[in-house]
Design a protein around this nucleic acid. Sequence first.
DNA 1: TTTAGCACTCTCCTTACGAGAGTGCTAATT
DNA 2: AATTAGCACTCTCGTAAGGAGAGTGCTAAA
Lengths: 344, 344
Amino acid sequence: MTDLTSRQKIILSLIVHEHTRTAQPVASKTLIEDYGLHISSATVRNEMNTLAELGFIRQPHTSAGRVPTEEGYRFFVSKLVQQTALPSATRNTITHQFYQSRRGLDHWLPLAASVLANQSQAVSLVTAPHSEKIAFKHIELISTRGSQVLMVLVLVGGEIRQQLLALDEVYSQESLSQTANQFNLNFENKSLRQIEALEPSTEPLVLQILAAILDQMHLTEELVTGELFLDGLSNVLSTPEFAASNQERSPLRLLEERPMLNDLLSRTVLTEDIGGVQVLIGGEGTWQELRDCSVILTRYGIQDQLSGMLGILGPMRMPYGQAISAVRFVGDLLSDLVTDTLIE
Amino acid sequence: MTDLTSRQKIILSLIVHEHTRTAQPVASKTLIEDYGLHISSATVRNEMNTLAELGFIRQPHTSAGRVPTEEGYRFFVSKLVQQTALPSATRNTITHQFYQSRRGLDHWLPLAASVLANQSQAVSLVTAPHSEKIAFKHIELISTRGSQVLMVLVLVGGEIRQQLLALDEVYSQESLSQTANQFNLNFENKSLRQIEALEPSTEPLVLQILAAILDQMHLTEELVTGELFLDGLSNVLSTPEFAASNQERSPLRLLEERPMLNDLLSRTVLTEDIGGVQVLIGGEGTWQELRDCSVILTRYGIQDQLSGMLGILGPMRMPYGQAISAVRFVGDLLSDLVTDTLIE
DNA sequence: TTTAGCACTCTCCTTACGAGAGTGCTAATT
DNA sequence: AATTAGCACTCTCGTAAGGAGAGTGCTAAA
């Protein structure tokens, strides 16, 4: 069905390339002149007709040049795109930025977003890594004012949750520390289910802390992703794909409304293994907001343990080769960093 | 110099109001018809001439209606704007949203951004509270893998910093806890300067931890603001003030590039006391990116101890009354919450 | 199968023109 | 002195018409 001759593939690739560059319909003459094809424009037009019948390109109007269709981009991405690896100088610069200051995720995640945005000239998104299984690692109780206590909960994988508790009475820092230590001894590496199954203590302080721990662990479990980092918004402001559509249907709403974003991520990249890059073109009939956009996503982290997600969102007319390479590169980089600094 | 008659003030207010509503030049006839002025259009035009001479309004072209100038908005905001308090039902709903789940800042700050964006139909920004003086509150050392240790540092005010340390050798969790306790006993409430002045220990573990603590405290001290939360970006995508300008000059760049934002905040709201609302109209000659925009900012928190900042960024043509009220209201709300949950 | 040649179509730019909105000015009125 | 009715004037905006140019589709020849 989709058996294109190699010449047809070349022509489709060139149309995609040229249209990405100029945002204009591509004429047959442009192809042979600018890309040095040794065939005539009439031949190109004949091939274009075939491609149009297959649904890969279309004419905005009679006697206009050709524009790739959604299907055309899909075919291009799945069969024709050449991953134009980032120049090694660029790769070195980026790697260096990540490794020069081993400050940790709070530094790396915004940096990853910034790098992706710059490389792709689109909007980038990066989520903090999130554990597959929620398990207790460490707790700390810090007396603050009166009966108010700051609880800092560290989970296996390194997620940190904090909560301010208003306890029923004033406890000394000493007894708080003692209680925390009990929890640390008994709960280390225990999963949420295991903790829930334990015989509850009768001591009021322990009970209150336990409730808070379970509460936080439940909250964390329900999270689809960790914290979200965006960058490159100003890259797409002027593109018609983002601005023109009415506010209700803006692709950016997908990034601002967490339920929408969670839905998108759950149904795409979260079903994939780590390392695979997924390309979503034109909303795939499911997301109206993405009608004129494409999303490139990947998962990073450690399979079955800890993973976050990153990618870019841009107009459908996008340099896919570069963009896919950039996403893959930054994803691998973050996977390495997460592996090095895993808290287990 | 700027002594307007009360009728001139009314006319200016009406022009601002009508232009905010329609985004069109305002005709003299529109004013008397839609707002029921009991004077003739010719009189209104005479007054308009006076206002134009004072530089408060201008004509896009001869024989067109009038549009407020930057100066006009400035006068309007400083002398004429009426704070249209949020309807009490809205206030209750919002307050309820904040108080119903006392989850803490990680919940309140995005909520504040969301509320501001909805109320103003502009972009909102909220920064996490940041201490005026950096002081040690509590430290925790958690053994993870091999010689890797997770340090969790809590500062007075409640800021939490984490860092993964690669120590020179493997220490047991016991000795780590012991060391942490030493720090907690000796350093509580000590400022960065006080800690730096202390006689250094000779024990290698203590030295390494101390270096990390000082490092994190220095990093925190250099921070102008805490973490940044944005919302409402899709509100402004379609407005010409944001989209039309070229990418380099987009007002959104000010929000994406931290140095720019820090500069803006340092030179405006950070010089003010908590509670005051500052309105920046048209970049005030300093920020080219804001040529067609206005920014409304306030500081929240506890004077001289802990403060963050919040506000909105929208087109210059903006319902100032509502926007200022919303910013003030949410600011006060966050101030109360921060006061209630202060870690001291 | 490829290609030269050419008529045809559609966009886009320019010009022209009229309707309509809104003003500025003058002279009359309060 | 302040206000207003009246009216000519100016500028925008929408529509229509015409022409240039880009690009195609098709046919017939190579």
